[in-house]
């Protein structure tokens, strides 16, 4: 399957759940979906056996004057040279997203990293134990959020 066919196929697969799409590079397709449709979109990709889950990238979008801050999840799938990104966001006030481990069991390590680094709660994920952060890392401090800028001194936190 060549890159363009793969991307067209992905676009068709996700059509009914898509909020907006973008093609930032020739071999990439970004599809924005809402939280409600997110699981259905992942199911469609999985059932069509379109590529494999290459990464879950977290992205912190801090609050601005107009909009509430949110955490965005970028679920990147690769098929040959084609890269499909399913983008879904959760606001700080309700940082919940559904887990995809029931569909893609190996996502558990990626999800554990996403949870502890960004403070999103992935509902239904099988394991929420810490993967990377130290045992004595304070609860509720999410290092990859932009608001985290390090601890002030050795005595704090």
């Amino acid at each position: 399957m060549d890159t363009q066919t793969a991307l067209t196929q992905a676009q068709e697969l996700l059509q009914q759940w898509t909020d907006s799409t973008a093609q930032p590079e020739a071999h990439r397709l970004d599809v924005k979906v809402s939280r409600e449709n997110f699981k259905a979109a992942i199911t469609a990709v999985k059932q069509a056996k379109w590529g494999y889950l290459a990464a879950i990238t977290g992205l912190d979008v801090p609050a601005t004057e107009e909009a509430e801050g949110q955490v965005e999840g970028l679920y990147q799938f690769c098929e040959g040279a084609a890269v499909l990104t399913i983008r879904v966001a959760a606001p700080y006030s309700e940082p919940y997203l559904p887990s995809i481990c029931d569909l893609i069991p190996v996502a558990t390590l990626y999800e554990r990293e996403f949870i502890e680094m960004f403070g999103v709660f992935l509902e239904g994920t099988p394991n929420t134990e810490r993967l990377l952060l130290a045992d004595d890392w304070p609860v509720g401090v999410y290092p990859l959020r932009k608001s985290f800028t390090g601890f002030d001194s050795p005595d704090e936190a």
């Binding site: 990377l132 952060l133 130290a134 290092p143 390090g150 601890f151 050795p154 005595d155």
Partner: peptide, 16 residues
């Protein structure tokens, strides 16, 4: 490869 975070040592004798 898996591990990529700053570990800040805390406690009495530690130093940042």
């Amino acid at each position: 490869c898996n591990d990529r975070l700053v570990n800040i040592q805390r406690g009495d004798n530690s130093q940042v």
